[in-house]
Computed example of a mutant assay.
Amino acid sequence: MGLTGKRVFVSGSTQGIGFAVARGCLAEGARVVVNGRSRHGVERAVARLLEAVPDGDVEGLAADLADAAQVASLLAALDAGGGVDVLVNNAGVFDVAPFESLDDDAWRRYLEVNLMGGVRLARHLLPAMVARGWGRVVFVGTESAVDVPGDMVAYGASKAAALALANGLAKLTRGTEVTVNTVLGGPTWSDGVASAVEAVAAAQGLDVADLRAGLVRETSLLGRFIEPGEVADLVVYLAGVRSSATNGAALRADGGVLTATT
């Protein structure tokens, strides 16, 4: 993918899709910076990555992307390390909840992480990429931004806003070697989803495998949950030099869940 020596920052990368993206970029020779809210989680992710890629160049920075002050400190640390060639906006929060149960504070949390986290990072890092003449910004989105679930309205709406953000940012890169794209992931067997399903199975006395199979969406052409690495593969491609003609796009890694053709 031509990522050797490129510095890649992946937000929310201590587990799940973000971790898989970090591992994929590291295996391609990139210098990777992982991120999570807790220092312990970040250190554990760095250790796991070095186990997977023993000669990898990886470091970690802890910061809560919902906190503007912490993001400012994070960006200062990234600048001190030489800036960033590739920004992967992966951090996000989600939950299943009735629309009427979500108060303003809950909505603010969704918007602060799922939208403003990407805004704050791109606002600082994208102009530097344009000035240097090369860069990649990839938003890890979701099919829920296109087909918003009724029991995940806040999540879908905030991710739809992030999808619009990425589309607008791409227009600021016209005529440059910088691109901004979104990957629309589908239902993925991430650490968080696995933990939730295992908890429900234990509470109801169900077999985890049976419950997992029963949760696969009827419209899925894959017929199973997506593995984090399957979404990460597309992200890594968009982060590399070979994706130069792809800009302002929303590419699907949804397992065929979305029934629309575009």
Rank of each mutant, 00 (worst) to 15 (best):
P98V: 02
L184V: 04
V180D: 06
V34T: 01
T259Y: 05
L215F: 00
V148N: 11
V137H: 05
A209Y: 05
R48G: 09
A77S: 15
V200I: 13
Q204K: 14
A22E: 06
N181L: 08
L26I: 11
A194L: 01
G18A: 11
D95H: 11
V10W: 09
T188D: 10
D254K: 01
L184F: 13
G92P: 11
D67I: 09
R174Y: 02
N89W: 01
S144M: 08
L50M: 12
T182E: 00
A97H: 08
D104C: 00
E112M: 10
M1I: 05
Q204S: 12
E59K: 06
A45W: 15
A66R: 13
R242P: 01
L211E: 04
V58P: 09
L50V: 06
V241F: 02
G229C: 02
S220E: 03
L169F: 11
G214L: 01
V10R: 04
V257W: 07
A66T: 03
V71C: 14
V42L: 09
L125W: 11
G81L: 09
F99D: 01
G150K: 03
E112D: 15
V178F: 12
A63G: 09
G135M: 02
D64T: 04
D79E: 15
R123G: 05
K159Y: 00
E28N: 10
G18R: 03
K171M: 14
T188V: 04
E112H: 14
D207P: 13
L234G: 10
A249R: 11
R31D: 13
S73T: 07
L125D: 08
A164N: 14
G186F: 00
D233H: 13
V257I: 05
A145Q: 05
N35F: 12
A161L: 05
G41Y: 12
S101T: 14
G24I: 05
V236K: 02
E59N: 10
G36D: 11
N181A: 04
P98S: 02
R224W: 01
T176D: 06
V86T: 06
D210F: 03
A22D: 09
F139N: 15
A20W: 13
L126I: 10
L163T: 12
A194F: 00
G168N: 14
V241Q: 14
